[in-house]
Design a protein around this nucleic acid. Structure first.
Length: 430
RNA sequence: UCCUCAGUAGCUCAAUGGUGGAGCGACCGGCUGUUAACCGGUAGGUUGCAGGUUCGAGCCCUGCCUGGGGAGCCA
């Protein structure tokens, strides 16, 4: 007897296999039953014919409730009618646990109901496919970086103060002192890059902002590469390479999942290097020509970003924003000190910003001046300023938002489906 | 925080100010190729909460609660 996963069933045509899984759905037609089962790796249909089954076994199959756990022994048969190309003819089945009335029907449900039942919703074909694609995105991103000499050097989640100075933080009691949940690992990644050269951090980021849109989570995951001796231009190239590699890997390794969520694959196949580029100056001109009420110096909102991104089929870099729109640590353009060497990477199809990156200020005096201009507390950044006192070098990095990348690659309407248990405004359960 | 929409059966939704219904799910029965199967039957309700208007309120008014979508902020 071969025990195998549903994903591997294709390797055992004509043979008997044991699958340990759950009953996903059931249809019956009197003397024939169709059990759809799942095991986490995929879905397959088990055919139960009355004429080929004992009365006890046939009756057992007829009474298994949705999401009951079962072990199925069956013979693998290829069948053109099956979505995955294979079916199992039942030989034996044992019931591990008979499920109670299952709340989630394979029908339409409302958002609130599904979110209340997120712990069960993730069992559905669509949600589990999205989570497998999320895994592929994280795996391939790490694979790319690992293969290019990067060291994974994670940043702390509990931090003493704000890194960027603006956004709201979650405060925690750290043995009587105030500490905060990290909103970015970047400053620590910069320190690690000075030790290890090329590094990345991967971890959750927390923003206590009352954002209530389809693009925002309170807790989201961010991949933040940081590279010593890398300039702005090199930073853009690294982002292009990484994102193209991720898209290629998903297309190559998650074809079934993309199909099962009805993703238009042709749109992903157009994603290749080089990506589109546009300076902030040009972006303002284009927006003004298209009747946006915007002046040089204004930051873009999402309607502006969406308009710009929709001009192209590939991701778009918008570069060199005005200094005052961006964080204190970004390096001004030496030839034009009113703008900084930064980029936002906007995903196509209206998915908006998936990366924010920049070359960092490496000059001690300039960094101090910027901290003063932003009225940030100097003592908290003492260790960060040390990096500019002991062998400072030009360096660059960026943050890739995992969930927004998943939403774009999967073509989802809402970011809440991109992570197993989303944390959103006013929702912390399940 | 602001703008906007919504709350009726376990779920998705109907119901002109005048006797609260249907589909799905559950349960019972029928059907040998179903793909969210189909057909027949049974059970299932404090219409989010509190007031008000009215002969009469699921429906109109006020307040509150909960949720959806959007803005700002950003990944």
């Amino acid at each position: 007897m071969i025990e195998c996963s549903i994903a591997d069933v294709k390797l055992y045509e004509g043979q008997e296999v044991l699958i340990k899984g759950w009953l996903y759905n059931k249809r019956s037609s009197g003397k024939i039953q169709f059990l759809q089962i799942r095991d986490g790796s995929g879905f397959i249909q088990v055919v139960v014919e009355k004429s080929k089954t004992s009365p006890e076994l046939f009756d057992l199959c007829d009474h298994i409730a949705q999401e009951s756990s079962i072990n199925v022994i069956g013979r693998v048969r290829s069948d053109k009618r099956a979505p995955s190309g294979y079916e199992l003819d039942l030989i034996d089945l044992s019931l591990i646990h008979l499920a109670d009335d299952y709340p989630i029907a394979l029908k339409e449900h409302g958002v609130e109901f599904l979110m209340d039942n997120r712990h069960l919703w993730i069992r559905t074909e669509r949600q589990s496919a999205i989570l497998r694609i999320r895994h592929e995105i994280i795996k391939s991103a790490m694979e790319y970086l690992n293969n290019h000499g990067f060291i994974k050097a994670d940043a702390p989640i509990i931090t003493p103060a704000t890194c960027e100075g603006t956004t709201d933080l979650f405060e925690i009691d750290y043995f009587g002192e105030s500490a905060y949940l990290s909103q970015t690992g970047q400053l620590y990644a910069e320190a690690s890059a000075m030790a290890l050269g090329k590094v990345y951090t991967l971890g959750p980021a927390f923003r206590a902002e009352k954002s209530k849109t389809r693009r925002h989570l309170i807790e989201f995951w961010m991949l933040e590469p940081e590279v010593a001796y890398l300039d702005h231009e090199g930073n853009l190239k690294l982002q292009e390479e990484l994102v193209s590699y991720i898209v290629e890997s998903v297309l190559k390794n998650r074809e079934l999942e993309l199909k099962s969520i009805n993703r238009d694959i042709s749109k992903l196949e157009e994603i290749n290097k080089p990506f589109e580029r546009m300076s902030y100056d040009d972006a303002v001109k284009i927006l003004q020509q298209n009747n946006f009420d915007i002046q040089w110096g204004d930051d873009f909102g999402s309607p502006e970003e969406t308009f710009l991104a929709n001009l192209y089929k590939k991701p778009l870099f918008v570069t060199e924003y005005p200094k005052h729109c961006k964080a204190f640590y970004m390096q001004p353009n030496p030839e034009r000190p009113d703008v900084v060497l930064c980029d936002d990477l906007l995903a196509p199809e209206g998915y908006g910003e998936i990366i924010g990156g920049s070359q960092r200020i490496h000059d001690f005096d300039l960094l101090v001046k910027r901290l003063e201009e932003e009225n940030l507390p100097m003592d908290i950044y003492k260790w960060y300023l040390d990096l500019r006192k002991y062998g400072t070098v030009p360096h660059s990095g960026f943050g890739l938002g995992i969930e927004r990348t998943v939403a774009w690659i999967c073509g989802l309407d809402h970011i809440r489906e991109t992570i197993p248990f989303p944390r959103m405004l006013y929702r912390v359960t399940p």
